[in-house]
């Protein structure tokens, strides 16, 4: 497992193999698009009964990142839950687990398009937030000031083999990969992701190794 350290808008960032983003200077961990309780929503809507383990799997990975880094602040960059109703149906064990992870640190939920409503769990619930010279929101705005960090699009990119979730950034904005276990993705080189970036842009592909390539 190797990380990738890069500079974005004068801030040193670390891309984690898990798909998380670490700002060492601010002791802040950012994760995007957890899509917790996705299998529950599928079942509720009369779709397939998927293996009901993705919430556990996502939380296990998050717990590992928290253990490794001990962040003072965690930002969940939206679509943390697959829908608002899913939070009600979340198991008690998982709610407790989440509460334990939140203990002793600042925890910020950013509103996403899937979970646009207050979260009845610990932590602060906001539309967007700022840390240092970076702004955090769920969906990238068409025109933005430099330093926007967002999620939503689930970018993926392939270097030689199969595409993997990736970070995409240029001088002004950064889009994060989806952290949740049951999430697909769209190619970073295609619409609607590519047009959001300058000609000179980079992808940091996650997985066992975090590798940066020009997009």
């Amino acid at each position: 497992m190797t990380t990738h350290i890069f500079t974005f808008c004068e801030t040193e960032l670390t891309a984690l193999p898990s798909g998380g983003l670490w700002i060492a200077a601010d002791q802040t961990l950012i994760v995007s698009d957890l899509h917790l309780c996705k299998s529950e929503r599928f079942a509720r809507k009369g779709r397939a009964l998927l293996p009901p383990y993705e919430t556990r799997d996502t939380l296990t990975r998050l717990d590992q990142d928290l253990t490794d880094l001990a962040p003072a602040r965690v930002i969940c960059l939206g679509d943390s839950f697959d829908d608002v109703e899913a939070i009600e149906h979340m198991g008690d064990a998982e709610k407790l687990w989440l509460a334990r992870m939140q203990a002793g640190r600042e925890w910020i939920w950013i509103a996403g398009n899937h979970d646009a409503g207050p979260v009845e769990l610990g932590g602060e619930y906001v539309a967007e937030t700022r840390v240092g010279n970076l702004t955090f929101r769920h969906i990238a705005e068409e025109t933005t000031e430099a330093g926007e960090v967002s999620g939503h699009y689930h970018p993926k990119h392939a270097i030689t083999g199969a595409p993997r979730p990736c970070f995409v950034y240029d001088d002004r904005r950064l889009i994060m990969p989806a952290y949740g276990t049951y999430t697909g993705g769209i190619p970073a080189t295609k619409d609607p992701i590519r047009p959001l970036f300058d000609q000179r842009a980079f992808a940091v592909v996650t997985g066992r190794l975090c590798l940066a390539v020009p997009l």
Binding site: L50, P51, Y53, E54, R56, D57, Y153, H154, A178, T181, Y182, T183, G184, G185, I186
Partner: peptide
């Protein structure tokens, strides 16, 4: 609704392998 809602069956396989 676009591709981000679908995910590969490989993920389901890996999940079942680990938990069930």
């Amino acid at each position: 609704s676009g591709k981000q809602v679908t995910f590969s069956s490989d993920i389901l396989y890996d999940t079942l392998l680990r938990y069930d």
